[in-house]
Computed example of a mutant assay.
Amino acid sequence: MTSRKRKALSIAEKLEILRKYDENIVMKQSELADSLGIPGSTLRTILNNRKEIEENAKQTGGKRMKLRAGKFEELEDILMKWFLQARATNIPINGPVLREKATEIARKLHVSDEFTASNGWLDRCRKRHGIVYRQISGESESADKSCVSTWLTNVLPPLIHKFLPKDVFNADEFGLFFKLMPDKSFVYKDEKCSGGKLSKERLTVLLCANSDGSEKLPPLVIGKSVKPRCFKNVKRLACEYRAQCKAWMTGELFSTWLQDLDPSMIQKNRKILLIINNCPAHPKDVSFSNVQVEFLPAIQPVVLSH
């Protein structure tokens, strides 16, 4: 298989790609990338940098040939994939963490002699990829109501009309901080209200159920340990358990979960629709015979900034 040659896209070309994406929101990203003749990673980068591209277009009239790429483009591509995955699980990422991860990637790419994760590099990298640093609040960013309305009116009905309610499933993950103490307590009026260090030990749990509530799939639980001591002498679990070094959902774990789900539906001679959020840990280029995977619109952009 021959690899595509990288092409420097102008601002105007990137705007055209964004326009075609908006017009074909039902189409899978991998299919759209193929129809445009660009790698899927290029399309994802353009979508992630939409705001920066549109701002540059206003300033330059779309005539500038390209946004300047970094010298270590492969390193930054890998770093951004890791960054998106980390933010998808709501893990706070700051400058030192990004620099440390970049240094680790440089070692694996054997470019550590040339690459220095300096503050200057970090500033330039953030500008290239539209990353900002913000205060984390308790609530997620508000969704684009027009985007939601369009998806609910024009996209969702054609998807579900071929399926019975019992065959339309939705899945989502959440972080379970199982050692986290309550953040409120009864205290004496004159007592100083303070607590100890908050535990950051967590599990990731994926839950999946159908739209009429008649069926719930076994939960998928992701922990750090391959063989937790608490599982000793346990012959059967009420869930599926997988291990990942940070207890995060990854593209590989999600794909494996789908690959296990599809044969079970084949065995039941049943076809289902699975609707899931547009998360970096959920690979888009998946296809199965009895499980049709569709993604919610990307209505909550992931950003960090000043």
Rank of each mutant, 00 (worst) to 15 (best):
V148P: 06
V148T: 11
V148D: 07
V148N: 08
V148M: 11
S149F: 08
S149P: 05
T150A: 13
T150G: 10
T150R: 15
T150M: 12
W151Y: 15
W151E: 13
W151N: 10
W151C: 10
W151R: 03
W151H: 05
L152M: 14
L152Y: 07
L152D: 05
T153I: 10
T153Q: 11
N154Y: 03
N154K: 13
N154L: 13
N154E: 14
V155R: 00
V155M: 02
V155Q: 03
V155I: 15
V155E: 02
V155C: 04
L156F: 04
L156R: 00
L156T: 07
P157E: 14
P157R: 02
P157W: 01
P157V: 10
P157L: 06
P158F: 03
L159N: 07
L159K: 06
I160T: 14
I160L: 07
I160D: 06
H161N: 13
H161G: 08
H161F: 09
K162C: 11
K162P: 06
K162M: 08
K162E: 12
K162V: 10
F163D: 08
L164T: 02
L164E: 09
L164Q: 08
L164S: 08
L164D: 07
L164W: 03
P165Y: 00
P165W: 00
P165M: 00
P165F: 04
P165A: 01
K166Y: 04
K166T: 12
K166P: 03
D167L: 00
D167H: 09
D167C: 04
D167V: 02
V168I: 15
V168N: 00
V168K: 01
V168Q: 03
V168E: 04
V168L: 03
V168A: 00
V168T: 03
N170C: 07
N170V: 02
A171D: 04
D172N: 10
E173R: 10
E173K: 14
F174M: 13
F174N: 11
G175L: 11
G175K: 07
G175N: 15
G175T: 13
G175S: 15
L176Q: 12
L176A: 13
L176G: 06
L176R: 08
F177R: 12
F177L: 11
F177I: 10
F177K: 11
K179D: 14
K179M: 12
L180W: 01
L180N: 12
L180T: 13
L180F: 04
L180A: 15
M181Y: 09
